[in-house]
Every structure is written in structure tokens, then in C-alpha cells.
């Protein structure tokens, strides 16, 4: 996968920029004298971003019963408005924003209705081919991750997930969220601290063992 780098995070560390678009990146530049390429097809966008949309829904706290509809909703919007975009970078930023917004509203809706992740490890532990022990372990990991991320407030959680799990730069996150770069950088620092504290808290509570 081709990687591009952005100017970096708040510490000046280069971070991967919009990694999900990397396979399309070589087509961003049109040969001299030719018109720039148009927006990607819906199929391309779907293939590139489906996994991102799915896992981000989960990491932003959308319970499993709502994930299908939330992801579907994202791509319905994409399909309807794809032709309005002239550049892939703008589309990607916009898609990140849609995913975040859909996730936040789905989560709130689920909270209001008291809908949460299922208790059944076989349902929760997603992986299809694992054995019972692996599935149980995996389900416990999913629960623990949800608890830890759930300890972050919404703003921190979004920034943390996009920065750490998706490896987006602060600048990309700021663009996607429509926030000031400094605000996002500050929020990310606070989110990391909160994450560390939440890990320590749940580790103590659950006797979580590393490896």
C-alpha cells in the first residue's frame, strides 16, 4: 500500500495520511495536458472505505444491532452524492465526517432505547472460524475495548479513534470534523491520557493480563 505522509501530529511526528485511499492515490495526478481524473466510482469508494466505516462504527460505540444500518446509511449518502465531488481527497474527508456523524447519532439513539451489544460471545466475537476458546477471548476483548473507549467522552473518543486506530493526522482529523487543528491536537493529548487511565482502571477491575 502506498503511503503518503502529512506534516505530522502535534509533536511533529509524521503520520499516515488517509491510508484508506492509498490504492487510489496514484491516479490522483493526471498526466500533463490531460484533465484530472474524475471522482472514484461508488464501487471503488465502497471497497476502499467499507472496513473503515464498519470498524469505526464499532469503535465509536455503535452497538452491533445498529451497525449494519449505520454503515448502510453512510453508503447511501455516498451513492447519492458521489458525483458532486471533484477530488478524492475532499471526498475522503467528507466520508470521514459522515461516518462520525452517523456513528454518533446511532449511538445516541441506541442509548435512548437501551440497546447494547449482545451478551452472546458467539455473536459478539465476530470472527467466524475461531474455536470456542478464541471466540470467548475475543468477545471479552471486544467488551473490554468498548468499556475503555466508552470511558472517553464523545469528542475525545472520535479524535482518539481516528488518530490511533486509523492513523489519521491531526490535520486530517481537523478537516474531517470541521475543527481547528490546535483544538484537535489538544483534544488528542487529553484523549490519550484518558485512555491510559481507563486502561489502568479496567485492567485493575478485570484482572486483565497482557498477552
Amino acid at each position: 500500500m502506498t503511503e503518503t505522509t502529512s506534516p505530522g501530529n502535534e509533536h511533529g511526528t509524521p503520520m499516515r495520511s488517509t491510508p484508506l485511499l492509498d490504492p487510489l492515490a496514484p491516479r490522483r495526478r493526471a498526466p500533463v495536458g490531460e484533465a484530472p481524473p474524475g471522482p472514484p466510482s461508488f464501487e471503488e469508494v465502497y471497497a476502499e472505505h467499507f472496513d473503515f466505516a464498519f470498524r469505526t462504527m464499532r469503535r465509536l460505540g455503535v452497538p452491533l444491532p445498529y451497525v449494519d444500518d449505520a454503515v448502510q446509511e453512510v453508503f447511501l449518502v455516498v451513492h447519492r452524492r458521489l458525483g458532486e465531488f471533484e477530488g478524492r481527497a475532499a471526498l475522503t474527508t467528507w466520508l470521514y465526517r459522515i461516518v462520525v456523524r452517523v456513528a454518533q447519532h446511532a449511538r445516541r439513539s441506541a442509548l435512548r432505547k437501551g440497546i447494547a451489544d449482545p451478551e452472546d460471545p458467539d455473536t459478539l466475537a465476530i470472527a467466524e472460524a475461531d474455536g470456542p476458546h478464541e471466540r470467548a477471548t475475543r468477545a471479552e476483548g471486544v467488551r473490554l475495548l468498548q468499556r475503555v473507549l466508552g470511558d472517553l467522552d464523545d469528542d475525545k473518543r472520535v479524535v482518539f479513534v481516528l488518530a490511533e486506530y486509523e492513523e489519521l493526522s491531526v490535520r486530517d482529523i481537523a478537516a474531517a470534523l470541521g475543527e481547528n487543528v490546535n483544538t484537535v491536537a489538544s483534544r488528542l493529548r487529553a484523549a490519550r491520557q484518558s485512555f491510559e487511565q481507563a486502561v489502568a482502571r479496567h485492567r485493575a477491575l478485570d484482572q486483565w493480563r497482557t498477552r
Binding site: N9, F54, I126, L145, E164, Y165, R192, V199, R203, T210
Partner: peptide
């Protein structure tokens, strides 16, 4: 990442859990 050791360990242990099948 700027995460500390515990946070980093937890992060690495959980980063693949939410991938779709």
C-alpha cells in the same frame, strides 16, 4: 503513537477486534 506502555499494549491487543468479517 504517544501512548504509554500499558496503553500501547492494550491498543495493540485490541486493534484488530472490530474488523468486519
Amino acid at each position: 503513537s504517544e501512548l504509554g506502555p500499558d496503553g500501547r499494549t492494550f491498543f495493540e491487543a485490541t486493534r484488530r477486534l472490530d474488523e468486519p468479517t
